[in-house]
Amino acid sequence: MEPALAILIGVIVAASLYLMLSGNMVRFLFGLVLLSNAANLVIFVGGRLTYAAPPLVPEGLYAPVGVVANALPQALVLTAIVIGFGLLAFALVLVHRAYQVLGTVEGDDMRVAEPRADKG
């Protein structure tokens, strides 16, 4: 299962790079969503995969019995998803605002802070 997921991660990263390099900020955001999901998958696969074995401790015991799923990557991914969601929401609003103020979503045309004719 791990090799298949590794290939999937590769495909997602390739797609996200394609989107991010387009220079259009909206496409860039879609690329960013994909890339952050690829990173989450890396953590998930890094914890090794098990089939249908939730990490639950039976009643009366202190440790789960037998082989169970690694709970730590799930906690990490959950944290990363929450943080990623917050950052993405901010980035989305920022790009929207940039479109209102600067009138463009093309990265190359955003030259207010660094004017092209800057002789300095």
Binding site: M20, M25, F28, L32, L35, S36, A38, A39, N40, V42, I43, F44, V45, G46, G47, R48, L72, P73, L76, A80, L87, F90, A91, L94, V95, R97, A98, V101, L102, G107, M110, R111, V112, A113, E114
Partner: peptide
């Protein structure tokens, strides 16, 4: 707003790279 777009974009890529590194090193 103009400066922030570039700041946000590059810093977000860098945190995702850091996160990927954490996943790999944990694995």
């Amino acid at each position: 707003i103009d400066g922030a777009v570039k700041y946000v974009v590059l810093n977000l890529i860098s945190t995702i790279a850091f996160l990927t590194g954490i996943g790999l090193i944990y694995g």
